[in-house]
Amino acid sequence: MLTILGLSILSIVGLIGAFYMAWNIGANDLANSMGDVVGAKVLNLKQVCIIGGIMNFLGVVFFGSRVTKTVGKGIVRTDLMMELDPHMAVLGAISALFAAGIWVSFATYKQLPVSTSHSMVGSMLGFGIAAASMGIIGFDDIGWTVLMKVAASWVLSPIAGMVLAFLIFNLIRHTFINRIKDTVKLEKLFGPLLIGSSCYQAFSFGSNDVANAIGPVPIILGMGNLEIPLWLLAFGGIGIVIGLSTWGYKVIYTIGEKITELTPTRGFSADVACATTVIICSSYGMPVSTTHVLVGCTIGVGLARGLEAVNLNVIRGIVYSWLVTVPISMVIAFTIYIGLVWLGI
């Protein structure tokens, strides 16, 4: 088989797909965590990109492996499949990566609030169903229990974030807002805290989102035990940082302009709630939508009377994108996979 630098063409194609997903995460999802810092004018765009990139990278490298394992071998028993038919496993993993990449790109272009996690999980499921229908694995080898848990985490995580943000903002009102009468002074005091909370958030996003880029890569590279080496996490982290620096900074700027209402006290509450929720999900290996959690947290601050107006229409958009993302990415992955097999690749 033709190889370049010891990698087969298929592996290179797979790595390109993974890099593209990582780029997408950096271009959008990571940017969401830093918008408030720019909006509150605590740091400038360049400073925010640098610290956001670093913190995200650290989250990826030190805490990214759990979710990566879920995506890589929790949804489909890919470890089993690699023993049975490694080539078909590689094709499936590549199909899943490209399916997620295609859907995320299309949906983002349409400005739908879709999640890379939902897309990747849906794609892996599509891969699993295709493999099972071709008789490579059994339908029992799809991790239905894991899928149920993941689906539950998708519903629960934004709600948990909302409740947490509500509580945190109320706590801040009792301990700071009611005591420090000078609003300007108070918000200044929270400036550095907002930087800290955004860093925490960027770290948590890294720990969760990277899986959607590199989860299937160990299969593609034929790593028998499917352990995730540090260099692979770093590869995902670098892809995310490149996404941030080539596109994400624009997203940070746009979001920052729109959310000036998230002053340091409000932004801090939303960030801490969001980061904590995401970190907890990461520790359970649950690939959640960081964007949806952040929306939940913002609503939580709004419910605590922290914002002058929030349009709850956004919930409808999120539920809608959730419902379409899983089946569509599933179908795309299924189709690509069957197509590749049919072509005899």
Binding site: N28, D29, T254, T291, V295, T298, A309, N311, N313, V314
Partner: peptide, 13 residues
């Protein structure tokens, strides 16, 4: 705009 975050949730007061 290649943006996924639903910025529309932040409306004018």
């Amino acid at each position: 705009r290649f943006i996924r975050f639903p910025v529309d949730m932040f409306v004018k007061s």
